[in-house]
């Protein structure tokens, strides 16, 4: 902390580095339609069954901010930088009010998406990497990040009609003008996001899991990684 004398509450001041709290932070990442939510659900159930108190926090769910984001998205009113910062505000609120308090109580936090989603999406829209990393440097560093890798083509096959019906122009990258055809735009945009995740695997030490396997195999791999991490703590 650079300005100890002036800090209102040291938790609020951005800091880089490990989180230093007694709890554990597990992040599950993966593109849209990668099966991420199902896997998070199963992981949380498993942890709870083993008596582990779990706090789950999903992307864009701040009670104070997410409603305004969803409304703006539906109206397609979000321009690029505004879009990026709005999500950062939602994230900042959840870090302060959900993630850090749970880590302080020595609980396990499972985050359905984290800063890496923002890094990948914004990079796909042309944002400066250093700027983004500094913007998000208040985020506690996760103990483990499970990244479910599924190629855009496979994801598109999973539920194309529902996706198009939902008309999430941002998920389809239609705000970027890559292609007028929604399916093609989805593939082009999601490929950029996919490549960013690939790059971040090395940068942040993400644990990549082949998300094209069946649900049970993916979950088994995830539990193995989480088990190892949690037992390393008690060892």
């Amino acid at each position: 902390m650079r300005e100890a004398a002036m800090s209102v509450d040291e938790r609020l001041v951005p800091a880089v580095g490990g989180h230093g709290y007694p709890g554990k932070l597990i992040v599950v990442e993966g593109g849209d339609r990668s099966g991420r939510s199902t896997q998070v659900e199963l992981l949380v159930q498993w942890l709870e069954k083993h008596g582990q108190p779990v706090v789950r926090t999903d992307w864009s769910t701040s009670p104070h901010i997410s409603k305004a984001i969803h409304k703006a998205k539906a109206e397609r009113a979000l321009k690029t930088v505004t879009f990026s910062l709005f999500y950062a505000a939602d994230f900042a609120d959840r870090v302060a009010n959900v993630v850090i308090p749970a880590l302080e109580r020595a609980e396990v936090v499972v985050a359905d998406r984290y800063v890496y989603t923002a890094f990948a999406r914004d990079a796909a829209r042309g944002a400066d990497q250093d700027w983004l990393r500094t913007l998000y440097n208040f985020a506690p560093q996760p103990d483990v990040v499970l990244y479910l890798a599924v190629t855009p083509a496979v994801r598109l096959q999973r539920e194309p009609s529902a996706a198009i019906k939902s008309r999430d122009i941002y998920e389809f990258g239609l705000d970027l003008g890559l292609s007028a055809d929604p399916q093609q735009s989805f593939e082009l945009y999601q490929q950029r996001v996919f490549d960013e995740f690939d790059r971040m695997t090395g940068e942040f030490g993400l644990t990549t899991i082949d998300g094209e396997q069946d649900v049970k195999s993916i979950q088994r791999e995830m539990r193995d990684v989480v088990s190892a991490m949690l037992s390393a703590r008690t060892a």
Binding site: L12, H64, I65, L85, A89, A92, D93, N97, F138
Partner: peptide, 14 residues
């Protein structure tokens, strides 16, 4: 009074 100074900061930037 539900947000921290940091969150306010990002919201104002938004």
């Amino acid at each position: 009074q539900s947000l921290t100074p940091l969150t306010y900061s990002v919201l104002h930037a938004t």
